[in-house]
Computed example of a mutant assay.
Amino acid sequence: MQATSLDSAHALPARCYIGEAMLEMEQATVFAQSWQLVAHCGQLAEPGDHVVEQIGKVPVLIVRGQDRVLRAFPNVCRHRAGPLALCNGKGARSLQCKYHGWTYTLEGQLRSAPEMQGAQDFEVGDIRLPPLRVHEWQGLVFVSLDDEVPAFDEVYAGIVERIAPIDLSTMRFERRESYDIACNWKVYVDNFLEGYHLPHVHPGLSQLLDYRAYDTELFAWHSLQSSPLRDAGDRYGEGEAFYYQIYPNIMLNILPGRLQTNRVLPLGAERCRVEFDFFYAQDDNAQARIAADAEFSDEVQLEDIAICEAVQRGLASGTYDAGRLCPKRESGVWHFHNLLRAAYSRAANE
């Protein structure tokens, strides 16, 4: 699956969207080798606050230390792989394995191991949880499992400057909405990455965005779709809509006064969950914006779910392989597919 120029590009073949073997490979070569959004800073504000997540096949624990430094570890005890936490929590003083009670400091150092006094050459002080890379950005928290993943600032380069004067770090978390969808995770990402379907799938959204001025820009690890807003009224006011997709499965939908983060999480070869977290600027229009946004956002998501599930059925039908991409409207899809092709190639050569 070699990358080709945009004007001669094809989509990924249907076989990339079906079968557990494909997903198994992607868990190791795509999800475990990228920066993953795991939390927002409000969940980790004070020492002992912690969040439990999963990246690929790795259970992950993110915790704010007594020194107020944010750290991430595999949520796996060094004794016999028990979990250090079962759910998100606040104000923990230590991390205690739920299997045999081995206890670690919030900084990952083993502090006690019950009844291990008779173990030869066993020293509590020699055992630490292996650290993972963690990064706080604009009120969001990210973790990477692999030291070879590019630096966070390289992956997210230029976003803050491009959206100014919008300041994401001042927005406050409001709510989460989750949707379980009967499609491969890439079907949902593909759909997000192009405005080609707007006139056919999203009549309401098409009235909000200027399709003639809809533009796509490509960067090393992300793409941006943007459009001037029109007739946005109480929902968003005047300005521009920014739709960022950061490889492989993170979206930032940014409008004046509102950030919506999307995480696309595979549940199986032909199922995924999309988590939407909503953040709002705390200004005089906040409550009106929140109320108007809720119904409209749900309408758009239901439209996307219906078309993505239909596309998955088409991919699994045995009648489709890899169609041509529209150079004018599907450059974001081409860019995403080329990043995936590179990951698939690395996996094949390992």
Rank of each mutant, 00 (worst) to 15 (best):
G257W: 04
F173Q: 12
R133V: 10
A9Y: 00
V30C: 01
H202T: 06
A322M: 03
L110Y: 09
N253Y: 11
W185S: 05
A32F: 00
Q287Y: 08
V30F: 00
R313P: 07
D231H: 15
R329T: 11
R341A: 05
P165C: 02
R324Q: 02
Q2E: 14
A348R: 10
E46T: 13
D231C: 11
A288L: 15
Q120C: 13
A28L: 01
Y280R: 06
V201L: 05
Y244S: 03
D7G: 10
V160L: 09
Y196M: 08
D126P: 08
R329Q: 12
Y243S: 13
W137I: 02
A3Y: 01
A164C: 07
Y179M: 00
A85P: 04
V274P: 01
Q120A: 15
Q2D: 10
V264E: 03
V155C: 08
A322R: 06
W185C: 06
S178C: 13
Q27M: 09
D215T: 14
I18R: 14
K186D: 01
L95D: 02
G237Q: 05
L95H: 02
L145Y: 00
V38Q: 05
L61R: 11
E20K: 10
P131C: 12
D277G: 09
V311K: 12
E309T: 10
F31M: 00
R172Y: 07
Q260V: 14
E295M: 13
L252S: 02
L265M: 15
L110N: 07
A269Q: 05
T4G: 04
W35L: 02
A164N: 04
Q109P: 05
R258F: 07
T261K: 08
A294D: 15
L132V: 01
L145K: 00
Q282Y: 10
A9W: 01
L205V: 03
A316S: 12
V264W: 04
Q287T: 12
I254Y: 07
E238T: 15
S144R: 03
D231K: 15
G204I: 04
Y156R: 06
N285L: 14
P83G: 02
M1R: 06
I62P: 05
L61C: 08
E217W: 12
L110T: 10
L37I: 06
R324N: 01
C16V: 14
Y104D: 00
D293T: 15
A21L: 09
Q312M: 11
L229S: 12
E270D: 08
A182M: 07
